[in-house]
Nucleic acid binder design. Structure first.
Length: 936
RNA sequence: GGGCCUAUAGCUCAGUUUCGGUCAGAGCGCACGCCUGAUAAGCGUGAGGUCGAUGGUUCGAAUCCAUCUAGGCCCA
């Protein structure tokens, strides 16, 4: 009796050093180092310099704090685009940038200084801010690089670079010269204690007790032709306010144009107020007897006038659709110098932006009775005055949320101060911007509608801030006549100083030193000047990045204005997309981008926004630590980024599994190529068997689909298509079927080489298409593939394969679609046999198939292949099957019978066969394996 | 409160970019099973959805319209 021989070592089992487990925490840093050391990015610039350009212009994140999922998502998407466009034959330089100026950094520095700020000069504070911004630029740069994002990291653009600051000055200068820049009063938050303007971020809300007063304004325009019932009556509009001190600045009363108003007779007078609030008000006023005389159409009162109760001035009646009817009277007191909406309405009706309050919160001299009085203490006196003139209908107190200064915690006020604006009307800027919007491709398409409706109604751009950390508004006033110098030569002179010394120069030198020698006022010939000390809105900084970065610069070569693409979150329709559009249209008459792509926001598994208070925040760092940047990248790819993007631990776990699947599939491919030399062993397509040609056909389909998905920035289709191809086409079918041929055939046999040739081609395609997304894994694979054939040192220097029409065979694909449908029925039958313990492995089985005429004829043609395709030991197409056969679920008339194939199992290929035992030398083997063994 | 957007199985997404009639699908996960020659792998079978809710248009709607609900972005 001979010992059973182990034939395992006669098989061609897969071999590879490409490990099953990725160890991404080691792989990623190694490849990052390699890319850095070999200068991959620079290498790409060199290699691709003659290709057509594709410019994705980076929107600058704010240089404050660590990156979060939103910034990571944004940069990874950009990386997908840069890498894929590059691999599609473009030259894609990518210069990342940072937004460095602005309030948040100045705040942080303030906090660090703990009040020492007052003793410091603006220059010293600015230096601290610069250091702070630099620190976080460095941190974020490291974090972005860790995600595998390739770019010009050694030469990013910073809005605080001297050259960039000079660009800001020059671009502002263009607007100044074009006449779009003007100065006007506008209400801002103002702290009378600190005597400074506050930004919205500096305002805290807290409960405050305030007087609640109802005041009547006498209607002095005669409306009795329309409302004869009011003839010979004293008619009043009744307003409600909680800030009596703004009454001296009252210029108007606003009504809601959509609401219904009534005129009510009570106490021998007539009051006009909103119908809906009538009863509530009357009960507040303690008036029991009243009578509605008539309804009043608000449009009939528009531009009519009331008399101010204690100032010798008229108050205009206006319409404003923001008036709510929740509280008050529906008639709203308007002081354009003391409220945002009041201001907007004031502009619409041409009212003065009147704010008779000084920096310390005291009434100015032109206010009768209260001049010099602090506004909050004046409240009581104003109420007294209202009583005195019999204008007060009702007085009470309420507690409500009121803005307070973040520093001194005292209540603040709205106060009009001089601000700088860019007019959107002058030179038809708005109209031109709207026309420019039409020329841009917005993805998704609703982006156009969104930005258009914003530009249509936006007010003039307030570009001034009363701060130090930023680029100054470089304007000089004549000391003698107040005229502003608007001179190209002066702007350029200042720009050159700033280019050399930075915007600090503005704070360092006085006006005389900043002006060219001999400058005199063109109006009054004055020779002494004062410089403006406001700084520019940071949206202007980043809004001119297209000029600072893309226009011909010796610093970044290969760039081009305008950009092909901007890509940011959908909040930037109001932000950067718009500021960039306005600066470009205003100075260059066209948009700075050809296309704008937007993504949604990262939310948690339930679709709620991530916030510290909800405790559902996930940080990029955690994901990298736990799973690797590759998984983070896969998450970006797997999600449809045009909507909100969900992120949770469950989602990440799912992606880890998907990653393993893709990795293992490629590992199987590479493992079966260990003895394959494409130069000598390659079997041409025409000489391969049908299933190989089916796989080649499917591969072309995949190529087309993936190319289209990259073309359209649909990365979730990349992920799903690639994953599905690995799982369905390869793992569950082609590779499973192929194992027999790969393992048991003679190593150099043509059929095995044909299989390997196909695997080789599949792998060469997959490694390239996965590279933009799974950059680390693709590069690792690429390194392994270098052992087969010489190739560029990085997958990113290669190009995405084109579909090969000679590999496409629709007729063949259709035939195999039928075969696969039959196979599905067979596996179902196999499973039943397995459950009834008739078989274990499918190779234990024999399959008999009966089918209607047409299908039967078709299957007969494939009869010899069917056992292989089904991975069973024997398969036969028969004329009839009895009731013990399984009727197919999805194919009419098909019957499948599975039964144990009663022959011995070949110890080498595990197929059962009547041939086993017939050969004396190899009694445990089937005829085919005997043949192979003889040849070895 | 207003503008824009989203809502398909527990999860991620499909159903070839122009708009109602084999579109209710895939994968993951789950359950059960097979294999042990992709093995901290691989294969198979199965259970899951009245396509956010309600109303309407239509012979017929997840697919069109309206309203509502939930969520997101931007404003107020």
């Amino acid at each position: 009796m001979v010992e059973k021989r182990d034939y395992k070592d006669t098989l061609n089992l897969p071999k590879t050093k490409f490990s099953m487990r990725a160890h991404l925490n080691k792989l990623e840093p190694r490849l990052l180092k390699k890319w850095e050391e070999t200068g991959l990015y620079q290498r790409m610039r060199q290699e691709f310099k003659d290709r057509p350009l594709f410019i994705l212009h980076d929107g600058p994140p704010y240089a404050n704090g660590h990156i979060h999922m939103g910034t990571a998502l944004n940069k990874v998407l950009k990386d997908f685009i840069v890498k894929s466009r590059q691999m599609m034959g473009f030259n894609c330089p990518y210069v990342p940038g940072w937004d460095c100026h602005g309030l948040p950094i100045e705040h942080k520095v303030d906090q660090e200084l703990e009040g020492k700020k007052k003793e410091m000069s603006p220059l010293e504070i600015r230096q601290r801010c610069r250091t702070y911004a630099e620190k976080f630029m460095h941190i974020q740069r490291q974090e972005f690089k860790r995600l595998g994002i390739l770019g010009e990291w050694d030469k990013p653009y910073l809005t605080m670079d001297f050259k960039y600051q000079a660009t800001i000055v020059r671009e502002f200068g263009k607007f100044l010269l074009s006449g779009n820049v003007y100065r006007r009063k506008k209400p801002v938050y103002w702290c009378p204690q600190c005597q400074t303007a506050l930004a919205e971020a500096e305002v805290e809300y807290a409960d405050e007790r305030s007087p609640s007063i109802f005041v009547k304004f006498k209607l002095i325009t005669d409306i009795t032709d329309k409302y004869p019932v009011l003839k010979d009556k004293d008619v009043y509009l009744v307003i409600w306010t909680t800030t009596p001190w703004t009454l001296p600045a009252n210029l108007a009363i606003a009504l809601n144009p959509e609401a219904e108003y009534v005129a009510v007779a009570a106490q021998n007078e007539v009051y006009i107020l909103a119908a809906r609030l009538l009863h509530l008000c009357m009960s507040d006023f303690g008036i029991k007897n009243y009578e509605v005389l008539t309804e009043i159409v608000p449009q009939d009162l528009e531009k009519k006038e009331c008399q101010h109760p204690f100032v010798d001035r008229k108050s205009l009646i206006i319409l404003a659709d923001y008036i709510t009817l929740d509280t008050g009277t529906g008639c709203v007191h308007i002081a354009p110098g003391h409220g945002e909406e009041d201001y907007e309405s004031g502009l619409k009706y041409g009212l003065d932006v009147y704010a008779p309050v000084d920096a310390s919160g005291r009434f100015t001299e032109d206010i009768p009775f209260f001049a010099g009085e602090f506004v909050f203490t004046a409240n009581a006196k104003i109420i007294e005055k209202l009583k005195e003139v019999n204008a007060l209908l009702h007085l009470s107190e309420i507690t409500h949320s009121y803005p307070h200064c973040w520093r001194c915690k005292k209540p603040i006020i709205f106060r009009a101060t001089e601000q700088w604006f860019i007019s959107v009307e002058k030179n038809n800027l708005r109209q031109k911007a709207l026309e420019a919007i039409e020329k841009v491709k917005w993805i998704p398409s609703w982006g156009k509608n969104r930005i258009r409706s914003m530009v249509e109604v936006r007010p003039d751009w307030c570009i001034s801030r009363q701060r130090v950390w930023g680029v100054p508004i470089t304007v000089f006033y004549c000391e003698r006549c107040g005229e502003i110098l608007k001179d190209e030569a002066i702007i350029e002179h200042v720009a050159q100083i700033i280019e050399k010394e930075g915007a600090d120069a503005w704070f360092k030198y006085d006006a005389k030193e900043l002006l060219p020698e001999g400058t005199s006022c063109p109006v009054c010939r004055g020779t002494t000047f004062r410089k403006e000390m406001d700084i520019l809105d940071v949206w202007f900084d980043s809004g001119v990045s297209h000029v600072a970065v893309l226009e011909k610069s010796p610093y970044w070569q290969d760039l081009r204005w305008p950009a092909d693409l901007y890509l940011e979150g959908s909040d930037q329709h109001r932000g950067w997309f718009q500021s960039s559009l306005l600066t470009a249209v205003g100075t260059r008459e066209r948009p700075p981008y050809e296309a704008v792509l937007t993504h949604g926001f990262v939310v948690d598994g339930q679709g709620r926004k991530m916030s510290k208070s909800l405790g559902n925040v996930i940080y990029p760092e955690e994901i990298i630590k736990q799973y690797g940047a590759e998984i983070l990248r896969l998450w970006v790819a797997a999600s449809n980024y045009q909507d909100d993007i969900h992120l949770s631990q469950d989602i990440l776990k799912q992606l880890v599994e998907a990653y393993r699947r893709i990795r293992n599939t490629t590992r199987f491919l590479i493992g079966n190529l260990y003895d394959f030399d494409p130069k000598t062993d390659f079997v041409p397509y025409a000489e391969r068997v049908e299933i190989d040609r089916w796989a080649a056909h499917r591969l072309q389909w995949l190529i087309k689909r993936l190319r289209q998905a990259y073309e359209r920035y649909q990365f979730h289709l990349i992920y799903h298509s690639l994953h599905s191809f690995c799982v369905n086409d390869l793992s569950a079918f082609y590779l499973d079927v192929l194992k027999d041929r790969l393992y048991t055939s003679a190593p150099k046999s043509k059929e095995r080489r044909a299989a390997q040739s196909t695997l080789w081609e599949i792998l060469e395609v997959i490694v390239r298409f996965m590279a933009p997304v799974l950059s680390f894994t693709a590069e690792e694979l690429w390194e392994h593939l270098s052992a087969w054939t010489p190739r560029k040192e990085s997958v990113f220097l290669s190009t995405l394969p084109e579909p090969r029409s000679e590999y496409e065979d629709e007729a063949l694909a259709e035939r195999w679609e039928r075969l696969l449908a039959v196979r599905k029925e067979v596996t179902r039958a196999l499973e039943l046999a397995r459950q009834s313990k008739e078989i274990g492995h499918s190779l234990d089985a024999e399959v008999l198939i009966a089918a209607p005429k047409k299908l039967k004829k078709f299957l007969k043609e494939y009869e010899k292949e069917l056992a292989t395709i089904f991975i069973v030991s024997h398969c036969q197409v028969v004329d009839e099957l009895g009731n013990d056969a399984l009727a197919a679920e999805e194919i009419e008339g098909l019957k499948v019978l599975v039964r144990a194939y009663p022959y011995p199992k070949c110890e080498r290929c595990w197929k059962r066969s009547p041939e086993v035992g017939k050969n004396e030398k190899y009694p445990e083997l089937c005829a085919r394996c005997v043949e192979v063994m003889e040849a070895l």
